[in-house]
């Protein structure tokens, strides 16, 4: 009885790990490809260990194209992503607090608008937003890629509201009795307790923004201003024969920040969404 149970257990863990390995195989293949020669990549082997380790791909790739190195692209990506993520967290927390904790006239209306924005596919707004930024003369600048993120992102507002619903209102009441204003409650009661939800927002918004391709494609045409995602695609297109090894090397580097954030915070992500549970 006991042995069949432990055999079952081993079989379960074996299956889960093997299947998980299959799932991340393409990513591992990319990392290994960054050390392979072009010929070996194009032959299309399944092997993860390169026949000959070729680390020169990284040096070649970093040089970039038309005189701009990847330091520029990664730097652009990094600060755009950091600013947009900061904006999302701050503004979404403020709005979520208003919509979930303060009974003001128009709350229902703005809540409905927020849900509507959440259900509205962004691509519908692509053309008209582009036209407006064009009219304002801001196409080609970073403004369209950053400013909207300081106005609250509906998806995260909703997540945070779900989370706040789980914070007992008695805490607000107690703070009020202690003479805390509505502003004080936000900073001293809600914000500290919101941490798991904030961390979830940081991770998700960070990798969404870091990976974003359409935004930079629409608004940035100057190669000097390009983000990493844009640059990798341009790199793939730049030479007549693509240097796959170098492309994979730059691709691998471009995923490092996302992985770092994930490794650092993933405990919160896996549990954070859990506790923000979706009721009703």
């Amino acid at each position: 009885m006991k042995t069949t149970k432990s055999i079952k257990k081993i079989a379960y863990h074996f299956f889960v790990v093997a299947f998980g390995f299959l799932m991340v195989y393409p990513v591992l293949w990319m990392v290994s490809g960054s050390f392979k020669g072009n010929a070996e990549i194009l032959r299309g082997g399944l092997n993860l260990i390169p026949k000959e380790l070729k680390s020169s791909n990284y040096a070649t790739g970093w040089k970039g194209f038309s005189g701009i190195t990847f330091s520029t692209y990664f730097w652009n990506s990094l600060w755009i992503t950091l600013l947009a993520t900061l904006g999302t967290v701050v503004s979404s927390a403020l709005v979520a607090y208003a919509l979930s904790r303060i009974r003001f006239k128009g709350r229902k209306f703005w809540f409905t608008c927020m849900i509507a924005t959440m259900l509205l596919p962004g691509q519908i707004l692509m053309v008209p937003s582009f036209l407006i930024w064009h009219k304002l003369g801001l196409v080609g600048t970073y403004v369209p890629l950053i400013l909207p993120y300081f106005c609250g992102q509906a998806f995260f507002i909703y997540q945070m509201m779900q989370f706040m619903a789980g914070i007992p209102r008695e805490l607000d009441a107690a703070a009020t009795i202690d003479g805390c204003s509505k502003y004080g409650i936000f900073f001293h009661v809600i914000l500290p307790l919101l941490k798991p939800s904030i961390v979830t927002t940081v991770i998700i918004q960070f990798y969404w923004k870091w990976d974003d391709y359409m935004g930079p494609l629409l608004y940035l045409s100057d190669p000097k201003k390009a983000t990493a995602s844009l640059a990798i695609k341009m790199f793939a297109d730049s030479a007549s024969t693509t240097d796959y090894g170098a492309m994979f090397a730059m691709s691998t580097i471009s995923l490092i920040p996302v992985f770092l954030i994930f490794l650092f915070f993933n405990r919160y992500l896996i549990q954070g969404i859990g506790t923000s549970g979706l009721k009703g």
Partner: peptide, 9 residues
């Protein structure tokens, strides 16, 4: 207060 906090949205 509500409108102050909701202003960004």
């Amino acid at each position: 207060v509500g409108h102050v906090f909701a202003a960004p949205f």
